[in-house]
Design a protein around this nucleic acid. Structure first.
Lengths: 304, 304
DNA sequence: GCCACGGATGAAACTTACTTTCATGAAGCG
DNA sequence: CGCTTCATGAAAGTAAGTTTCATCCGTGGC
């Protein structure tokens, strides 16, 4: 793995559990069994001995140790301590809404709303917690100094990419987003040193996005990735890795939580860039806001 | 250990630290040294090994164990865990993030991230709280029974509209979104009884969206509006009004908070609809997921 | 002053928990 | 089909935690 210098935002300060669930897919099967136990009930895991935990996960102590190392701990005792701390900090999730949990079959809409909102808010908060300001700073730096910025994303992540592009454009940065892979590829080929390419992929396995990012990188552009999984393939082609912290998700609410997390990160970058030149950015936003003013109906009824 | 307890080491109610300092005077000198270390810095103590702690307290491991028993623990590991948990709990969440607050001019990126995430999460939570499940239910009902669904939105709200359209489409509902007003208008003119039109506008004053919604309504379609302002013009042309709760916002972080709130509402509607026919919805999602599978690169597993 | 007595204490023996090493077998690669 | 790589657990090895026990020290009785 001759990997070029990469800065990754995986310094899990806020949430160890979050960090672990992000790493989950990159773990071996046996380690995953351990991880799932840990994520499911951190406090309980902290109480167990390594042998006990290994037995419950139907594996050996060795694997548990390997798991500890995989998530960045020195050994099992350290994991225990961290888990205990984590569990204590964790606010009691309201009633039956398990974090990242599924929605019970018989749920009424009120429950559904509560659960979704809880998970969504959580994803946003936890993403912010684990985001490394230093890496963000570098990405912001790159964008501020960039000649051209291109943002890539497919499917749902495409919305986020498009959103970011629009935002940057509004404050006068030259940014592009291409819904079409071929167009994106050709454009990426025209990038060079001093340009920036940002690839967005929740799973980190979207071939199209990886390919385009790779292309951009080979041309000398600085590349950044935004993904939920810190060891997914996309991180191989990124100089900077930013991660979201949406938990391993159910088929329904999960997708949205991850989207919100992505948007939050993108917004942080945007504000970071805008903050570099407040007056100019503010002015640009005012001008663009005025531009659509005639498309608003005058309302005397807006509440204050 | 056939010894009567020095002091009833019952369940320490307030906190372990408090408990320990409470019975500190009743401890033997050597144990007191240990106790003082523990009380002074629980988190640090939790990190140490028993030998290490004993050395620092200028005593033997045996004494540390005795101390553990004296304060009601079974042994040193249990003490460590409890201490770690205790220490974690007393950390107070960061400084002065005001709800809806602006970002101070000199803010560094860490502050920016914290502020944005806080506001975003709050917007999501508060939106969920004020959302009327009954109204949602009716909208869901309408969508479930609809022949055709059209979603309208301009600018930033357009992304949300598009997202909702895509989601509905994925579970087999016939839904449309038109980025172009003229197209939207003509399509709306073709709606009829049993169809549903949803207009999304943060301010509730977007003329294009209102116009289209009005058109749809005049043709007999059920109309719903999603806006942050319950008395804005768009509500005049809507049978059902759903509101977000993003606070009156600054030019920067605000826009995103409102977007996230909109997405949360849209996701609630989506899940509500999907829940009406779980198996069919799940199947549809699986099929569509498979469709893009070949565009994913293999395993995310990588060495660390 | 001398001698029990009992609690406090640490050295060392002991047990358990944790960590490393290594052989095995399965899965991918050319 | 052999080669490599990787995941895995058994077993050996090390460190951490626990118990035992002899010693020490102060106390009070003789």
């Amino acid at each position: 793995m001759a990997k070029s210098p990469k800065i990754s935002a995986s310094h899990e300060p806020g949430g160890l559990i979050v960090h672990i669930s992000g790493l989950l897919p990159s773990l071996s099967p046996a380690e995953q069994r351990v991880a799932r136990l840990v994520v499911a009930d951190p406090a309980d895991a902290a109480r167990r001995t390594i042998t006990d935990l290994a037995t419950t996960a139907e594996t050996s102590e060795a694997t548990v140790i390997r798991f500890c190392r995989s998530v960045g701990m020195n050994g099992y005792p350290q994991l225990r301590i961290r888990l205990a701390a984590e569990a204590a900090r964790r606010i009691e999730p309201p009633d039956a809404r398990v974090v990242g949990g599924d929605i019970p079959p018989g749920a009424d809409l009120a429950q559904i709303i509560a659960t979704i909102a809880f998970n969504d808010a959580r994803a946003v908060e936890e993403t912010a917690e684990q985001l490394d300001p230093a890496v963000c700073e570098q990405v912001v730096e790159a964008i501020v100094g960039a000649g051209r910025i291109e943002v890539y994303g497919a499917g749902a992540s495409g919305f986020v990419a498009s959103d970011f592009q629009q935002k940057l454009h509004r404050i006068g940065r030259t940014a592009f987003y291409f819904p079409d892979v071929h167009t994106a590829l050709t454009s990426a080929a025209l990038l060079g040193k001093g340009d920036v390419a940002l690839g967005i992929s929740h799973t980190g396995t979207t071939a199209d996005v990886i390919e385009v990012l790779e292309q951009a990188r080979s041309r000398g552009a600085a590349t950044a990735a935004l993904t939920n999984f810190p060891r997914s393939p996309i991180t191989d082609v990124a100089d900077f890795v930013l991660t979201t912290a949406a938990r391993e998700t159910t088929y329904r609410s999960g997708a949205m939580a991850s989207r919100l997390a992505q948007l939050t990160v993108v917004d942080c970058l945007f504000v970071g860039v805008a903050a570099r030149n407040r007056t100019r950015a503010r002015k640009a936003l005012e001008v663009t806001a005025e531009a659509v003013q005639t498309h608003r109906v005058g309302s005397t009824r807006r509440r204050g």
